[in-house]
Amino acid sequence: MASGSPVLAGIDLAVVGVSAKTTWLFLRARTQDGAEGFGEATLYGEEGAVAAEIGKARELLLQRPLPLPGGALQALAMAQASSSRRAVTHALEQALVDLFARRAGLSVAHHLGGPYRDRLAAYANINRGISDRSPAGFAARARSVVEALGYDGVKIAPFDGLNWEADLAQRQRALAAGVERILAVRDAIGRDRRLMVDCHWRLSRLDAIEVLRLTRNANLFWLEDALDDRAFSAEDFRSVRSAANGIGVRIAGGERAETVADIRDIAAVGGMDVVLPDLRFTGVRNGMVMLQFAVSAGMEASIHNPAGPVLDAISVQVAAALPSFTILEGQVGESELFDEIAGGRPALVDGHRPVPDEPGIGLVPRLAFDAAVPKAGSVVATFVGAAGTGADA
Rank of each mutant, 00 (worst) to 15 (best):
G283K: 12
T382H: 05
H90E: 13
L195N: 12
L195T: 06
Q74C: 07
L62I: 15
A244Q: 04
L62F: 08
T326D: 03
A157I: 08
G48P: 12
G71R: 05
T31R: 05
V318I: 02
L212Y: 14
A387T: 07
L291A: 14
S3I: 14
A268W: 08
G37H: 03
R171M: 05
G344P: 14
K375Q: 15
N125T: 07
L363P: 05
A372M: 12
G360K: 04
W201S: 11
P69K: 13
S242C: 11
M272P: 03
E358Q: 13
R86V: 13
I361D: 00
M1P: 06
V185K: 08
R353D: 00
V260Y: 03
W222L: 11
D167N: 08
L214P: 04
L328M: 06
G344Q: 06
A35R: 03
L227G: 01
F325D: 02
L149W: 11
I189G: 09
F221W: 06
A267D: 11
E93P: 08
I327K: 02
S296I: 09
D192S: 02
V269D: 01
R117L: 08
H304Q: 10
A57H: 10
P135L: 04
I361H: 03
A319L: 09
I341P: 07
G70C: 07
V373H: 01
K375I: 11
P306D: 13
G330I: 00
A14W: 10
I189E: 14
A376Q: 10
G113A: 08
D278E: 09
A140Q: 15
N219A: 15
R173T: 15
T42A: 12
A243Q: 13
V373S: 06
A244N: 00
E255T: 02
I263H: 01
A41K: 00
A81C: 09
I156H: 13
S19V: 03
V154H: 14
S324W: 10
G248H: 12
S324H: 15
I209F: 02
A87W: 01
L68S: 14
A208H: 05
G114A: 02
I327N: 08
V97N: 11
T89N: 04
S82R: 12
D350K: 06
P306A: 00
V364H: 10
L25H: 01
Q94I: 00
V16H: 04
A208G: 03
V274F: 10
T326H: 07
G362C: 07
V355L: 12
Q172S: 12
P6R: 01
T259L: 13
M196P: 01
N245M: 07
D392G: 05
I266L: 15
L183S: 07
L168T: 15
G10I: 03
L367V: 00
D225A: 06
S131C: 06
E258G: 14
V211Q: 04
G45A: 14
